[in-house]
Design a protein around this nucleic acid. Structure first.
Length: 262
DNA sequence: TTGATTGTTACCGG
DNA sequence: TCCGGTAACAATCA
């Protein structure tokens, strides 16, 4: 489910719902119980997103790091609390909202050196105002690895996942197997700008939208109508067949007419 | 019950 | 060092 837009959206919403409050933090499933004890009853200062990572900064307590992975989800509802559904790893209970976290890849307390290490190993995030695209460009320009792997490599650029990878490369008319070093500076700049625009639209829409839609129409469309070639059979531009293949064990799609191999 | 899934990490061989 | 392949893990749904 989650790519970078989901994470930034969660940070934005959760800041509104529970930041600044003193929270009751529990672990209904029990697997996080010991750590939950360390942040239970603390005030949540900020919720920040870095690529696909979330950091919950508490007053006088370690920072909670969450990564949703492939299956992680947040659910929220208004108080009073209802029964946890499924394997709830951690529950945040605020004065107005209850937030449950299920299935995260990472859910752990970190001290400042560990946070520095985490932030040091992820690349610039197009959704962040402090992102430095030069760092991504330098990595791509000197790499022979395919651009389809590079833009999904969180150490190169943070936030893009399999769907945005597919859609951005189609929009930029770049074949996923093009070596990074073969991209011109202009092509990189356009790719970065497109990633930024699409991720920002994703945060605003709370869904992945990579096609042009009338304003406010996104909610009325079906999942498949919001993407160009991801999980599609035909190219919306040339009507040719979409080729499916695998890249790093993830499904990949390409229109080899619109995205000619280099 | 099986398979698939919008992710990451560790490890290994070339 | 870099790159590509593999396995393991996470939870839910069709």
């Amino acid at each position: 489910m989650p790519e970078g837009h989901t994470i930034h959206r969660a940070a934005r919403d959760q800041t509104r719902w529970i930041a600044g409050e003193t929270l009751a933090i529990s672990s209904p499933q029990g697997r996080f119980a010991e750590q939950a004890g360390q942040i239970d009853g603390r005030r949540l200062d900020t919720v920040e997103a870095y690529g696909k990572h979330l950091l919950y900064r508490f007053e006088n307590a370690p920072t909670l790091h969450v990564h949703l992975g492939l299956f992680g989800r947040f659910t929220h509802h208004k108080v009073p609390a209802r029964e946890p559904r499924g394997a709830v790893r951690v529950r945040f209970s605020g004065s107005r909202f209850i937030l449950d976290l299920n299935g995260p890849n990472a859910c752990e307390l970190l001290e400042p050196p560990q946070i520095a290490h985490l932030l040091g190993r992820i690349g610039p995030d197009p959704l962040r105002a402090d992102a430095d695209p030069e760092r991504a460009y330098r990595r791509i320009a000197k790499s022979k690895a395919p651009i389809g792997l590079l833009i999904m490599d969180q150490a190169v650029m943070a936030g893009v996942g399999n769907i945005y990878r597919t859609e951005i490369l189609w929009r930029q008319r770049l074949h996923p197997e093009t070596p990074g070093a073969a991209l011109s500076r202009q092509a990189f700049d356009a790719l970065w700008a497109d990633a930024k625009d699409l991720l920002a639209l994703g945060v605003k829409s709370n869904m992945i939208v990579t096609v042009d839609l009338e304003r406010g129409r996104a909610a009325k469309t079906k999942y498949r109508e919001r993407t160009n070639i991801f999980a599609h059979e035909c190219c919306p531009s040339c009507a040719g067949a979409i080729r499916r293949f695998e890249m790093a064990a993830r499904r990949a799609f390409v229109c080899e007419t619109c995205q000619p191999p280099v």
